[in-house]
Amino acid sequence: MTAADHPPPPLLQACGLSFSRNDEPVFGPLDFSVDAGEALLVQGGNGAGKTTLLRVLAGLLRADRGSVDIDGEPAQPARRARAIAYLGHLPGLKADLGAMENLEFLCGLHGRRRAQLSDQALAIVGLAGYEDALARQLSAGQKKRLTLARLWLSPAPLWLLDEPYANLDLDGIELVNRMVQAHLRAGGAALVTTHGAYAAPPVRTRLLVMERPGTAAATGAAA
């Protein structure tokens, strides 16, 4: 037997995943997977359940039914904490800490990608010179860039990105695409939610289309 006879399991796999709120279905059942070096683009309008799906995958909400595996093993809380970096709608920053202080605080909680420094991450996202600026003094776009710097520093292989293009200009949108490209080249994976207004980053991509009140269709990988 060779390695080709036993391909590695998907970095993330969901089977029969469903979620309801107040007995009303939000999504599911869903079956999908994403491999290392690949992105899953999750499209759908408001109310289709995109944000809820990412919160379920991150372990912030409990699914009604179905399973989630990471690297072929059940996604227990400790495994999720090591494997997943979640970028939600809220920046998750401490308003009275500076940009650098926020990054150092979050790295202390969640770890740091090897050989990556906070000042380098700030430069990558266009915030060089803002090291001491308080988070509450930053614009919405600058706060998003600061959360992207934290994402870049994360050692987690799986990124869950909920509308990552929101509050960004065209340069910021291109920044997100470059970051996803680099993360996938390094062997990571990403789930990216979008209304469909932006093209997916130029990476190997699967598509999951979610439609209210919970129907969905997934396609295979595309170049």
Rank of each mutant, 00 (worst) to 15 (best):
A75M: 11
G141V: 03
R145K: 09
A39I: 04
D96Q: 13
P202I: 01
A222V: 12
S154W: 05
D23P: 02
Q116E: 12
R185V: 03
D169F: 03
L184W: 07
Y165Q: 07
T205V: 08
R212D: 01
G129M: 01
L12R: 07
A83C: 14
L153Q: 10
A222Y: 03
I84R: 12
H110L: 04
A221Y: 07
A186K: 09
A39K: 03
E163L: 01
V42I: 15
A75G: 07
I173V: 14
D31G: 08
L134T: 03
V125D: 11
G45Q: 03
R82N: 10
R65W: 03
G108E: 06
A121S: 12
L60D: 09
T194Y: 02
A221E: 12
L30W: 06
R204S: 07
L11A: 10
M100Q: 13
S67Q: 15
L109W: 07
G47H: 05
L160S: 05
D71N: 10
P8G: 06
R206P: 04
G88H: 02
L191C: 03
Q13T: 02
R178M: 02
S118V: 06
A128P: 00
V26R: 14
D132W: 01
M1I: 07
L90R: 15
R112W: 02
L158Y: 11
L54Y: 03
G66S: 10
K144H: 09
G49V: 04
L158R: 15
P213F: 01
Q13L: 08
L17S: 05
Q120K: 10
Q13W: 00
L90G: 07
V192R: 07
